[in-house]
Write a protein that binds this DNA or RNA. Structure first.
Length: 257
DNA sequence: CGGCATGTTTCGCC
DNA sequence: AGGCGAAACATGCC
């Protein structure tokens, strides 16, 4: 589930902790830098930001980075902003906890609980964000077009590249390409100025709608559609599925050209 | 059991 | 040097 939209949902949830002081912490040392717990104890949380798919907890010391991988999720003050992963069972095992931040008594639920069964996620201190391109909500048509013009690989792979646009994941890329009417296997360099403009319009509009609905699984190309491949809800043509850019990709061969 | 998964990093090859 | 495709990572689920 974790794409930029989920990161934004969790960022909003974690904002309630601004102004609190971290009284204690636990980390799974396999997914955190050495000395993490002593580095964050007694820090005061000053802001919560998002950079692409990363949630950033600013403090009066180092910034804490949450990197969700494929299955990471967040629970704030004991309640989950997103209940379960769409292809996960909904289990929530204590042994999957990778980070706990308390801002009060240890017998209370942690203010921030990062839980990740698969352990592709990790936590960081002062993460290097220099490799991230403009955010999916603010990227401009000219920025996008400038990158696309120099890329021979598929538009799908380009949009997944966090150096180009930060925050888009596999589901959201398929979603915006569906709305923009662009086939995922098209070479980036062949995407026109007009199409780049359409892509940006779609990103701003549809991603906003999906954010409000609950994240990257709430679009037209949702997990059920990806699995069952019903007919395209725009034109009734069969949807197709293939590996493009090394990722499972779903698109409509009729209206995506 | 085999295959698949919403992400990132690394490797080998141009 | 940098772009590209494939593999690897760790684990749960169907």
């Amino acid at each position: 589930m974790p794409e930029g939209l989920e990161a934004e949902i969790w960022r909003t949830a974690i904002e309630v902790t601004v102004g609190r002081t971290i009284t204690d912490a636990y980390v799974d040392e396999r997914v955190a830098p050495p000395g993490f717990v002593s580095a964050v104890r007694d820090l005061r949380i000053t802001a919560v930001r998002r950079a692409g798919k990363v949630v950033l907890i600013d403090t009066d010391g180092p910034t804490i980075g949450l990197h969700f991988g494929m299955t990471g999720r967040v629970v704030v003050d004991g309640s989950a902003p997103i209940e379960r992963l769409s292809y996960a069972s909904g289990r929530d095992e204590a042994e999957w906890n990778r980070l706990l931040l308390w801002t009060g008594p240890p017998d209370r639920p942690a203010a921030v609980r990062f839980n990740d069964p698969r352990r592709f996620g990790h936590v960081s201190l002062d993460p290097d964000l220099s490799g991230l391109g403009p955010d999916m909500f603010v990227v401009t048509p000219s920025e996008l077009r400038a990158v696309l013009a120099r890329r021979r690989t598929s538009i799908k792979a380009v949009l997944l590249d966090q150096h180009v646009v930060a925050g888009l994941g596999n589901l959201c890329v398929d979603e915006v390409l569906w709305w923009a009417g662009i086939a995922p296997h098209r070479a980036g360099e062949n995407v026109t100025v007009e199409e780049a403009r359409r892509l940006v319009t779609v990103m701003r509009r549809r991603l906003r709608v999906m954010l409000r609905r609950g994240g990257s699984t709430t679009g037209v190309i949702d997990p059920r559609v990806r699995a069952e491949l019903p007919h395209c809800s725009r034109d009734g043509a069969p949807l197709r599925r293939a590996q493009i850019g090394n990722r499972t990709t779903v698109w409509c061969a009729a209206h995506q050209r």
